[in-house]
Amino acid sequence: MGVPALIVTGVYLRALAVAVVVAPAAGDLGALWWMTLFAAPEASIQVTWPNMLLLTLAGLVVAWALWECLRGPLTGPPAEQDRDTRHLRVALYVAAVSTLVNPFLVTWSLWGAVETLMPMFGVVLLLSPVVGRTRRRVLILQICGLLGYGGTAVGPGLALSGHEAGALALVTGFASLIWTVLVLRA
């Protein structure tokens, strides 16, 4: 499956490069936002270098995820999985399905937050025993996962000014990005 994965990933990276070039020229992050976050862009988002950098990094993570997922399993006999690994695998599939359902939610309500975030909290808790060989690695995984998804959950409910909301979105965005990279690497 390496060739189809390479083609799909290459097409995505080219579209990402075009969106990165067009966004500052047009003064609109709409296309880049859709390509990287797979959600409707916020009306108040502006074309600034931190926003462009975060969205570009998110797009590179999506490209890496496409490559990792589409190329298929490694050749040879499958590795033996213990009970924790099987539970984590199920939690990752549930989280992926909830992420696919998220764009069809009409509004970001309490139930939408619960539907999206509860599977990811399960992944945060189940991932640590599987990949955590050291206490430091487990702590980094848990902090990034909980900060990224927890901050996203409570952010809309907080009465923050525009600058504070932007800072919270930047912190939760970077934490989610680091979390995604660590999960894909694990």
Score class of each variant (00 low, 15 high):
His163Cys: 00
Glu68Thr: 10
Ile178Ser: 00
Ala95Glu: 12
Leu60Pro: 11
Ile140Asn: 08
Gly27Arg: 04
Leu126Trp: 00
Gly145Val: 01
Ile143Pro: 02
Leu32Phe: 13
Val61Tyr: 07
Val22Ser: 08
Ile7Glu: 04
Pro50Cys: 06
Ala91Gly: 08
Leu146Asp: 00
Trp34Cys: 11
Ala23His: 11
Asp82Lys: 02
Gly145Thr: 05
Glu80Gly: 08
Leu117Val: 06
Leu177Gly: 06
Val101Leu: 13
Leu32Glu: 09
Gly157Pro: 00
Ala153Cys: 04
Leu177Met: 12
Val20Asn: 01
Asp84Lys: 02
Leu13Met: 15
Arg185Gly: 02
Ala63Gly: 15
Leu60Lys: 08
Gly151Val: 01
Val131Gly: 04
Tyr93Thr: 03
Arg185Val: 03
Leu105Cys: 05
Tyr12Asn: 15
Leu105His: 06
Gly155Cys: 03
Thr85Cys: 05
Leu126Val: 00
Ala113Glu: 14
Gly72Leu: 09
Asp28Asn: 11
His163Asn: 10
Ala5Leu: 12
Val94Leu: 14
Thr85Met: 08
Ser176Gln: 15
Leu53Glu: 04
Ala165His: 13
Gly27Pro: 07
Trp67Gly: 05
Gly76Tyr: 08
Tyr149Ile: 06
Ser128Lys: 07
Leu57Arg: 06
His87Lys: 02
Ala113Trp: 10
Leu60Phe: 12
Tyr93His: 11
Ala165Leu: 10
Val101Ser: 06
Pro129Gln: 11
Glu68Arg: 11
Val18Ile: 11
Arg86Asn: 04
Ala153Phe: 14
Gln142Gly: 04
Thr152Met: 03
Thr134Tyr: 01
Leu16Ile: 09
Gln142Leu: 13
Val21Gly: 09
Ser176Ile: 03
Leu66Arg: 02
Leu125Asn: 04
Val154Cys: 05
Tyr93Pro: 03
Ile140Pro: 04
Trp49Phe: 09
Ala25Gly: 01
Ala91Ser: 15
Pro156Phe: 14
Val62Asp: 12
Gly30Lys: 12
